[in-house]
Structures are given as C-alpha cells and as structure tokens.
Amino acid sequence: MNESLRMVVVLAVIAMVSAGILSVVYGTTSVIIEENAARALESSVYDVLPQATKVDIIRRSADELGVDDPKEMREQEQRTTLIYQGINDQDQVIGYAFVGEANGYGGVVRILVGVDEATDEILNIKVLAHTETPGLGSRIEDESFRSRFVGKTVEDPIAVNQDIDNLSGATISARAVADAVRQGFVDTAAVYRGGE
C-alpha cells in the first residue's frame, strides 16, 4: 500500500473507532449525569425547605423564552433565576426556593434560599458553590453565619452591618452572601407573588 495513503487510513480508522466507542459511552452516561445534576439541586431544596415532601420547578426561564440555540440557552440560564416550589404531603405549597449569585473574594458565590409561603420569611439558606479562602471566607458555610439570615423578609435591608452581623476577617465574603440573598429575593419575590 502507498505510504501516505496508509497513514491517512490508519489515522482515520483509529479516529472513527474511538469516536464510535465514545458515543456509546456518552449515550449511557449522559442520562445518569443529567439525573444527578437535577437530583443534586433538588436535594438542596429539601435542605432549605424542611417541611417539603415534593419539589416542583415553577419557572424554567430558558423554556419560557423558547430559546433553541444551546449556547444562548446556557447564557440565559446563567442570568435568570430558577424558582422551586416546596409542596407538603397534603399537596399544599409551603414555600419557595431560589438561587442567588454575587461576587465574593475569590469568585462567584451561589446561595440557595428557602422562603416560607405563609410568612414570607427566610427559613434557611445553603451555600451551593463558592471559592472563598479556606478558614476565613469559607466560614459562610457555617450554621452560625447562615442562621443570621433566618426570619428576614423581602422588606428587610439584608445587608452586612445593618441587620446581618459581620463575619470578622471575611467582610467581602459575608457581604457577597447578603448580596446574593437580597438580589435573588427581590428578583424572584415579584415573580412568584405576582402571577403563577
């Protein structure tokens, strides 16, 4: 066989076999990966809405906007907030959960907030992701800090040094959490209170 033709054929065969194997592996794993991602966020929702037995998504922005292009959809998803509805065993809506984001010391801080349906007070918050300094900023994950947000409503200022005690040595991280909670609260309260 011609030398350069052989090179092309061998490379093409290797590339095709590998693409074939990968598409099989991808086909079986991608389903599990998607399920995992959905379940991970759902289980976090149960953490901030302890009484809920079922969780529903009440507004998925990308679907609503009818965007088909995957890149645009991802951008939209990053900008808009998903709202979850916590439902108890009597099929009553007992609260809402939403994600808020703000810039901290090391990068974006993502917070999940649970709000009570009846009183409109924060039940609990959970840090979903952060890259704050271990030992300093990472204390935003501690129960003692997170509990400072419990009982706040959308009318409260929710700001460090006003109604939230500061975290000494980690002012920027603490402020990021407060910003994320307040911003998410303001953005979403209008939506789930307004029209469902």
């Binding site: 490379l11 290797i14 590998s18 990968l22 592996v25 079986t28 599990i32 990966i33 995992n36």
Partner: peptide
C-alpha cells in the same frame, strides 16, 4: 493522542455519572 484522549474521555464521563 487519539488513543489517550479516548480513554481520558471515558474516565471523565464515567466519573461524572457515577462519582459526581
């Protein structure tokens, strides 16, 4: 590189699915 990238992608996908 193609052979190596194939195995790496398999590891990546399997870990993503079973050890998220």
């Amino acid at each position: 590189i193609i052979v190596i990238a194939t195995f790496v992608t398999i590891v990546d996908l399997v870990m993503h699915a079973y050890l998220p």
